[in-house]
Each structure stands twice: as structure tokens, then as C-alpha cells.
């Protein structure tokens, strides 16, 4: 065998290699040479874009026009108290001009409205002053409950429920009446409200004092649930009713229907009896006694149950 016989063989091999490693990859858009065919142009890797920071709410100035309302109410010790509430008119009008959520699941946002918070904190401190004695915690709580329960009840359909004397333009007209969940300061300025208004106001006031509350929604009623570890007072002639949500016990609290009655027959003087925590039988509302309410948390954020990323083992033989 001579060199002239080997040269064509080598030339043929070179042609085959060039075709396999250069021409074919070039035609198919694959990388040239002895590299993996898996690499594809995938573009730039994604970049994390953080969300915007929490915006600071614009405070309503106190030196403008204000709406003032005086409340006269009976505290848990039997004493009659008076409390004055002042709300910037601009805030009240802003709320009146705000469309309402038709979905009751988001009504907790009214109770926690940032703009109402300073007014509720101030009011809660005056109704239930801070005390160093932890035994007085219950009395503070009950004074807040009593205060709200004694605000007169009025239905959303009635023009008398609104200080302007007419239904707000964002009232929601439904087949069985009108629905208009009020911001807490709206109920305070109006001095009246229905069940969800009272539950929202009470929820806002109790939240300002650090209590954990939820809205209890029945088919035709709304009340408040207040979280307590154990509530079984010796004086109660009923079994306090509570509902479990997220493993916690929320006791029923009525926001309306302070039990009013005449002191005696023919007398115009009236006396009132509060509805105690956990007492559902005293409300006289059938749905409260027969239904299990839907629990609506004041604060809602979507919380996934599954969120742990598992680390996968890498294939052996890598770089």
C-alpha cells in the first residue's frame, strides 16, 4: 500500500467529518462542533421586580369643617356617659362618594379603613381608657360593646339613617331592599345604622384596642365574632356561643338591638339591657339561632397552604 492509496481515504473521512460537524449543524441551527445539542437560545434570565412600597395615606386636616355628634350611653357600671365624636367633613364626604363593595367578604376593609383609624383609636381610648389593671380588660371591652349597641338601629332603606336625609348615591339597590355598608365614621356622623354598620364599627373599635375580631354573616343578619380563649362567666344563664375559624374561638357579639323597654306601664322612661357576649338566644333573630354563620375576617390576604420548594438532586457527572 502506498501513500497515494491512503490520501483518498483520509480526504473522504475529512469530508464526512466536515459535513457532520459543520455543515449539518449550520443548516439545522445547532451549535457547531462536538457540543451538546441541548443548548437553545432562551433569552435573558428573568429579573425580580419588587413591588412598590406602602403608600402613606393622605391625612385629613383637622382645621377644616367638621361633623360633630354627641352620644349618651350607659356603661357597664350603670353610669350614664356622654361622648363627643368629631369627624373631618372632607373625610365623611369622601366616604359618601366612595362606591361600596357588593361582596360582603371585603366589608372588613371598612372596619380597618386607614383614614378612620385615628378617630377610632381616639374614641376607643375615651370609651375604654387604658388601665394598668388587667382585670379591668373585660370592662373596657364591654364598654365598647355597650357603646355600639346603644347607637340607634335604622335600616339602610330609610332616609332617616343618613344625616343628609336622603339615600347615598352609592347605595346598592337589591331585590329585597337597599344595602349600604357604612364606614365607621359614617355611622358615627349619621348616629344610626343597621346590623352590618354596627358590626363594622364595633370591629374597627375593638381592632384599635388590639382585639382579634371577625364578621359573622347570616342570611339576613351580620354580627361580630371576638376571639377569646375561654369565655364562660359564672353569671351567664346561657352557654356562650362561639365559632371556630383558623383554630381560634370567636364568640358571638351582637352589635345592635340593645334591649329597650319601658320602666313601667304608662311611663315614658325607658331602661336598657345589653346583649352579653356569646348570647345568641337573646337577639330574637331566627337565623342567628338556627344558622351557622359565614366567617369573614377583617383582614384578608391570600395565603397558600403549599409553598415549599423542594431541592432536586443534581445529575452526577456535571462540571
Amino acid at each position: 500500500m502506498e501513500w497515494k492509496d491512503v490520501i483518498p481515504v483520509i480526504a473522504g473521512a475529512v469530508v464526512i467529518l466536515v459535513v457532520a460537524l459543520v455543515v449539518k449543524p449550520a443548516l439545522l441551527g445547532e451549535p457547531i462542533g462536538l457540543v451538546s445539542h441541548g443548548s437553545v437560545p432562551a433569552g435573558d434570565p428573568p429579573v425580580y421586580v419588587s413591588s412598590a412600597p406602602v403608600p402613606t395615606p393622605t391625612p385629613f386636616v383637622d382645621d377644616g369643617e367638621a361633623c360633630t355628634r354627641n352620644f349618651r350611653w350607659t356603661a357597664i357600671d350603670g353610669g350614664v356617659r356622654t361622648t363627643q365624636v368629631t369627624v373631618p367633613e372632607a373625610l365623611f364626604l369622601a366616604h359618601r362618594g366612595t362606591p361600596r363593595f357588593s361582596d360582603y367578604n371585603s366589608w372588613g376593609r371598612y372596619a380597618l379603613a386607614d383614614t378612620d383609624r385615628p378617630i377610632l383609636e381616639d374614641l376607643a381610648r375615651r370609651i375604654a381608657p387604658p388601665t394598668a389593671n388587667p382585670d379591668e380588660g373585660y370592662f373596657r371591652l364591654m364598654n365598647l360593646v355597650f357603646f355600639v349597641q346603644q347607637i340607634p338601629y335604622d335600616k339602610d332603606d330609610n332616609a332617616t339613617s343618613y344625616t343628609e336625609g336622603v339615600l347615598p348615591r352609592h347605595a346598592i339597590y337589591m331585590k329585597d331592599g337597599v344595602e349600604y355598608p357604612k364606614y365607621p365614621v359614617e355611622m358615627l356622623v349619621d348616629g344610626r345604622g343597621d346590623c352590618e354598620d354596627a358590626a363594622i364599627l364595633m370591629g374597627g373599635l375593638l381592632d384599635a384596642l388590639g382585639y382579634d375580631t371577625v364578621l359573622l354573616r347570616y342570611s339576613d343578619h351580620m354580627a361580630l365574632g371576638i376571639r377569646m380563649n375561654e369565655f364562660n362567666p359564672y353569671y351567664a344563664k346561657y352557654t356562650p356561643k362561639y365559632f371556630t375559624y383558623g383554630g381560634k374561638h370567636y364568640y358571638y357579639v351582637e352589635g345592635t338591638d340593645f334591649k329597650w323597654g319601658n320602666v313601667s306601664v304608662g311611663s315614658t322612661a325607658i331602661w336598657g339591657r345589653p346583649l352579653a357576649i356569646g348570647d345568641t338566644s337573646g337577639t330574637g333573630i331566627p337565623s342567628v339561632r338556627s344558622e351557622t354563620p359565614q366567617i369573614v375576617p377583617l383582614r384578608y390576604v391570600p395565603e397558600p397552604g403549599e409553598y415549599r420548594i423542594r431541592s432536586a438532586r443534581l445529575p452526577a457527572g456535571g462540571a
Binding site: 462536538l34 457540543v35 420548594i309 445529575p315 456535571g318
Partner: peptide, 28 residues
């Protein structure tokens, strides 16, 4: 050689993916 290269590329890509997922896991 080709098989090793393929496994190495797979390793590299899974590794990069896991690194990014680990970052996301920290944020979550």
C-alpha cells in the same frame, strides 16, 4: 464523550434552575 457532554449540559441546566428556585424559595 457525547453522552457525558449531554449529561454535563443537563446537570448544568438543572443546577441553574435549582439556584434560581432557591432564590425564589427564600423570598417566599
Amino acid at each position: 464523550y457525547t453522552a457525558d457532554q449531554q449529561v454535563a449540559a443537563f446537570h448544568s441546566h438543572v443546577s441553574a434552575s435549582e439556584a434560581d428556585l432557591s432564590q425564589i424559595s427564600g423570598k417566599i
